[in-house]
Design a protein around this nucleic acid. Structure first.
Lengths: 205, 205
DNA sequence: CTTGCACACTGAACAGTGTTCATTATATTT
DNA sequence: AAATATAATGAACACTGTTCAGTGTGCAAG
């Protein structure tokens, strides 16, 4: 019975086809401005077909949610070759900023949008993604503690504090709330602030 | 000609009537889920009427944007009686967190939503509100520098860094991204992180 | 006191949205 | 070849923000 297997393969193909079109449109013109009909047009199927493969628009969002975390993890993991844990932490920060700025729509989806949280609050997988990347941060911080960089011991709260700062920094920029600085100076200010923050955690954590 | 004056008064009354209904609904059920027809129903007018007083839905948002900043400023300003500048800075932080948590929809409007930024990017008034509150933070920091609390001199970057942290902290909470902590522990963790951050700026700014 | 005008208001209409479902077309099984 | 199971359709539903020709009322001038 190779037919069933082929059918399942076709079903998977279709899911991918839809998701790829959705991703393309979401990232190009934003989530809100992309309609199911837009996606259907892109893949030359009728709107109703999409609902045979995804429960609703939020489920499409959720599929990208996973992808987005995977992509960020892959980028953050590139720092593992740096032996000094504090240097590694700094570079992780740089990569975090880079990821956020280069993937504003994905970042929004991961950390700001309500939609994937509401509908999928029941499913544990959502938290899993977030927890894994938070765990990555905690690991590096733990290494810093072990190497004697930090005197502080509450790793959970240290991670929370560092993440809060990083998240605030990029969010202010992404959501266009840095108007107190000229457009061409904004990225510079982000780097200056980040340098100051590094100094802060170096001398007082 | 008292008639013209009366008519203008009536026009103002109508604008207020609409805005108050809009605010009520926006804060109750969120901006996205409130339709013009909902607002029209609430004040017992037809949908078209609203457009005689406000250009579009975003203009309603903008009117609340101003209100929201005013409200926050009033709350932040209550700390001026504290003579010690560092204590004042800490209390300002507490008030900032309090405001964000107690007015999540307004906070969203002020610092996260794109809508009021896009349509009103031309108008200088938007920045004005934000700049004024950012100025308030800078003033307190300046006082801290003068009082010898901080060795750092770049007030702009210090303010940016502190705000980024505060904003990140409350945003993570408001947007339900603190699932690594149990629901009833989240506010506690916020306070713990804030205490750590205070320690950080005290010993290293 | 009547006529004419200005203006507030209406609500149907337009183009769009997410989603559902009876119907149709296709492919598989009997 | 007939019966059945599955996939795809697209019209329909209940919404959305926004516009605009038409209506009715209150004011001003004749």
């Amino acid at each position: 019975m190779g037919i069933q297997e082929r059918k399942e393969r076709e079903k998977e193909d279709m899911r991918r086809l839809i998701l790829e079109a959705a991703r393309k449109l979401f990232l190009e013109q934003g989530y809100e401005k992309t309609s199911i009909r837009n996606i259907a047009d892109a893949i030359e199927y009728s709107p109703g077909t999409i609902y045979l493969y995804y429960k609703d628009k939020n489920e499409l969002l959720f599929a990208l949610h996973e992808e987005a975390f995977l992509k960020m993890m892959q980028q953050l993991i590139t720092v593992t070759h740096i032996s000094d844990p504090f240097e590694r932490l700094i570079e992780m920060g740089h990569q975090y900023i880079k990821y956020a700025i280069e993937n504003p729509e994905l970042y929004d989806l991961m950390f700001i949008m309500q939609a994937p949280m509401e509908t999928l609050a029941c499913r544990d997988e959502i938290w899993e993604d977030g927890l894994k990347s938070f765990g990555l941060l905690k690991l590096v911080i733990e290494d810093c503690v072990k190497a004697g960089y930090f005197k502080e011991t509450n790793i959970e709260i240290m991670a929370m504090t560092i993440w809060a700062y990083m998240h605030g920094l990029v969010t202010i920029y992404l959501k266009n709330r840095m108007s107190m600085f000229k457009d061409d100076q904004q990225l510079e200010r982000i780097q200056e602030s980040f340098q100051l923050f590094i100094k802060m955690i170096k001398t007082s954590l």
